[in-house]
Each structure stands twice: as structure tokens, then as C-alpha cells.
């Protein structure tokens, strides 16, 4: 069909792109994770001591565990918010469907930072939420734990990533043939039974995709903890940021990054296996 030269010419730019912006950075990262720092300079000597440090110092495992807890909480909340929303839009919204869909999407166009700062304004000790609670007389002094806590991080990230869970959920619900819902009711299943036996199982691929987005994106997030997290809300990416910045220990930061990368790849791999089992189209 196409000449060999043509194929090569067409394939070259993407290959170049992949090599320059994916393979090279990954290789550098991987190499750095085996090097070390001595008196402010990177020593290019191969060793596993960065990984040994990660295994021995419980601080890293703790932060990683906290990050996963936050990511899990965000995923759960984003699904709990995103699923009913997607269900309502797909099955009940009628002619307003397009408008509501756009309204869900619009926040994605607003800068992440703006939304982060918005939560800072809302949650702060002289913020909107505390002002409101004091006005109502529910609390007499500002509640401090709203801001600079894991709670604030979870809230902010849930707000940011709910549209990411909504989109694949909505798509999978939209793809469920409506005559299957009718067939279920025809066979004597009430709307509730129909939901659990037909709609929910068929929406699992979308649920999985949405959960993956929320979990993986949260796990790698460092801006929300920076803005609203405070010391107790620090996540693993913040550690990486500081190692690459002020602490100047690129090799250790690279080792953490490699571990994170393997973790995420593992999750994606497992999810893909599950998704294959759960998809029927």
C-alpha cells in the first residue's frame, strides 16, 4: 500500500517525540535513582542505597500511605458525587441533558490554582465558611481544622476530580441500550432491582475508569496539599518536590518517583485486566 520510505517518514516525528519527551526523561529519572549526592554534587555511581533509604525510613512509607488514604477518600467521594449526577443526566434529565452536561464540564476550564485558592478563601479561619458559622452562632470562635488539614485536601481534590469521574461514568451510562432497561422491567424487575442487576453492572467499566482517574491524579497531586494541606496534609509528591528543590537530593527524589511510577503502572495494569472482564460490548 504505502512505500517503506513513506511509512518511515510518517513514523519518524512521533518516534522522535516519544524518544525525546518520554524515553529520555524516564531513562534520566531511572539513572538518577541509582546515583547519590555528596557535598552538593551528584555522584554518578551506581548503588541501591536510595531504595534502601526508602525501605528503612518509615517517614516515606507513612507519607505514601497517607497519600493513598487521601486518594482513596477522594476517589470514593468523587464516585459518590459523580455517579448519581451521571445517572441523573443520562436517565432523568430529558431535554436539559446537554445544558447540564456543559455545566458539569465548565469548572474544568477554570484554572486549578483558582479553584485551590477559592477553597482557601472558603475554609480559612477568617474565611467564608467560618464567617457563616459564626454569623449563625453555631461556633463562637473560628474552626481551625477546616484549612491546612487532610480534610481540606480531600475536599479540594474531590471538587477538582469529580468531573473526571463523571465523564467516563456518563459515557458508560449513555452506552447502555435503553431496551435492556425495558427488558428488565418487562421481566418483572422494579426500577431499583433493574438498577442493581442491569444498569450498575453495565456501568462498571465507566466506574473503573472514573475511579482510576480520581485515584491516580490525586496520588500524584502536590498543589492542593501545598495550598490547603498544611504540615499534616503533606502528600508524597510534596516530598518529591522538596527533594528536587530545597533539599537538593535529586537521586532520592528520583527513587521515590520510580516507586510511584511502578505503583501507578501496577494499578493501571490491574484495572485494565478488570475492565476487560467487565466490558461486554
Amino acid at each position: 500500500m504505502y512505500s517503506r520510505a513513506y511509512k518511515a517518514a510518517v513514523a519518524l516525528p512521533p518516534l522522535f517525540w516519544v524518544a525525546l519527551f518520554l524515553l529520555l526523561p524516564y531513562s534520566l529519572l531511572f539513572a538518577h535513582s541509582f546515583w547519590s549526592v555528596a557535598s552538593g554534587a551528584i555522584v554518578r555511581q551506581w548503588s541501591l542505597h536510595n531504595y534502601a533509604e526508602l525501605a528503612h525510613n518509615w517517614m516515606y512509607a507513612q507519607v505514601l500511605f497517607r497519600s493513598m488514604k487521601i486518594a482513596g477518600a477522594v476517589t470514593l467521594l468523587a464516585l459518590l458525587l459523580g455517579y448519581p449526577l451521571a445517572y441523573y443526566l443520562s436517565f432523568c434529565a430529558g431535554p436539559q441533558k446537554q445544558l447540564l452536561y456543559q455545566l458539569v464540564i465548565v469548572p474544568l476550564w477554570v484554572s486549578y490554582l483558582v479553584r485551590g485558592y477559592a477553597w482557601k478563601t472558603i475554609l480559612g479561619s477568617d474565611g467564608v465558611l467560618n464567617g457563616f458559622l459564626q454569623y449563625l452562632g453555631i461556633v463562637s470562635t473560628p474552626v481551625e481544622f477546616f484549612l491546612y488539614s487532610p480534610f481540606a485536601v480531600v475536599l479540594t481534590l474531590t471538587h477538582i476530580y469529580t468531573p473526571f469521574t463523571f465523564l467516563p461514568l456518563f459515557a458508560s451510562l449513555e452506552h447502555i441500550p435503553r431496551h435492556l432497561v425495558e427488558a428488565s422491567q418487562d421481566l418483572g424487575a422494579s426500577p431499583r432491582v433493574t438498577f442493581w442487576r442491569v444498569i450498575f453492572p453495565l456501568s462498571l467499566p465507566g466506574l473503573l475508569a472514573g475511579a482510576t482517574f480520581a485515584f491516580v491524579l490525586t496520588l500524584g497531586d502536590f498543589l492542593a496539599p501545598l495550598l490547603v494541606g498544611g504540615p499534616s496534609g503533606i502528600m508524597i509528591s510534596n516530598v518529591v518536590v522538596s527533594l528536587f528543590g530545597a533539599a537538593y537530593d535529586w537521586p532520592l527524589g528520583a527513587a521515590i518517583s520510580v516507586c510511584m511510577l511502578l505503583l501507578v503502572v501496577g494499578i493501571l495494569f490491574a484495572i485494565e485486566r478488570l475492565e476487560k472482564r467487565w466490558s461486554f460490548h
Partner: peptide
């Protein structure tokens, strides 16, 4: 019995 059978794929 539906025109396109409407069997549950899962």
C-alpha cells in the same frame, strides 16, 4: 420479545 432481542450482555 424485543425486535433486537435485548439480551443482557453481562
Amino acid at each position: 420479545v424485543f425486535q433486537h432481542y435485548a439480551l443482557f450482555p453481562h
